[in-house]
Structure formats: structure tokens, C-alpha cells
Amino acid sequence: MNLINYIYILTYVSPLILTLGIMVGAYYYSSLNSISRLLLFYLLASFIFDILSRVIGMVNGNNLILWPLLGLLELAVFSKLYLKFIKKRKGIWTLVLMGIVYMLLEIVYIDSGNETAFQPYSKIVASFLVVLMVLVYFFQNIDSEVKISRNKLYLNFTILVFFAFNLVLLLPLNFLINEGSDLSFSVLLVYLIVNLLFYSYLIYFIWKNGKNPKPLLYGL
């Protein structure tokens, strides 16, 4: 079995983990706070994207059209999460709106059928903006000396690391799609593992919140 086979098998872990997360979220739904509910929605949307990508891949031959849509989803979810807690949000709002406009244009104009020319930047823009929002949020808390609980600190840190990885790993997407070398498969494998770890942490966060529901005192 070579690397491709391993990656292929590992891709099936993703919907399983997401299903588990949705079940955990649904079980504790009534005691979840707004953050956990939003993360649950993100897991649900990711699960739908996972299934859709497999179906569209089988029908169309490629599922690249979903790539910019996934970026849009991520930006929508995480900007909703952070813009609620960032105080000076005017500048960030403008950037997010510009990002959304760019993504919509990319969705409309990109030719997902032409794999050799397919190089979207939606996910890069989304990752960049999410990282920016996390950093602004961190800075805001440090500056105003507001104590962040350990759970929330870990959640923010996980989001920061995940989107920083996303940005760096997925920037050369065209290379990853077209260059069938071990290097590109290794990068995809790392991306897959990072995704699985991210989903697992979100599930753990939702489970912990559902098990010990606490009022949201200091924001995210």
C-alpha cells in the first residue's frame, strides 16, 4: 500500500468524526452556549461538504467547485464568532465584506473544470482573515486585561493554528492538484491530519461545554 492508499482510507475518518461531533452536539444541544452551537453548525456544514464533495467528485470527475464555497463557509462562521466579541470591529468588518465579495466573484468566474488553471484564493483569504481576527481578539484581551478561561484560550489557539496551517498548506493548491509527486501527497496528508485534529478538538470543546454548561461571561 502506498501513500495515496493511506490518504484515501484516511479520508473516510473525516465523515465519521464529523458524524460523532454532530451526535454529541445534538445530544447536548439544549445546554450548549452560542459558541458551541455555532461550532456545531460548522461541523454539520463540513459534514455536508464532505458528502457533497464525494458525490460531485463521482459525478463530475472533480469537486473543485466546492473549494471556494468552503472558504466562504469558514469565513462566514468564524467572522460571526469573532465579530461578536471584537470591540473595534469597523475595520475588520470592512475586510470581511471585501473578502466575501472577492469569494463570490471567484465562485462566479472561476473555471473549476480546468484543473491546470485552477488556483482559487478564497480559502487563503478566509484563513488570512480568520487569523487576523484571532490575533485582534487576543490583542484586545491582553490590552484590556480581561481574563480568558483556559478552555477558550485553547479554542482560540486551535483556530489560530488551524487557519495558519490552512493558509500555508493550501496556498500552492494548483501544485497540489496537478503535481502528483510524493511531496504534494505528503502535504495533502498533513492537511488531512490537521483537519481531523481540528474537528476532534471542536467536538471535545462542544462535549465539554455540553457536559458542564457555564454562562458566557467574558466572551470567546
Binding site: T116, A117, Q119, L171, P172, N174, F175, N178, E179
Partner: peptide, 13 residues
């Protein structure tokens, strides 16, 4: 020529 091989793409990255 694939997109990633173009100098402008690499510059943008």
C-alpha cells in the same frame, strides 16, 4: 503550462 509553474503565480504566493 500549469498555473503553479507561472512566475506570476509563484510571485503572488
Amino acid at each position: 503550462m500549469e498555473e503553479w509553474q507561472k512566475p506570476e503565480t509563484i510571485t503572488l504566493w
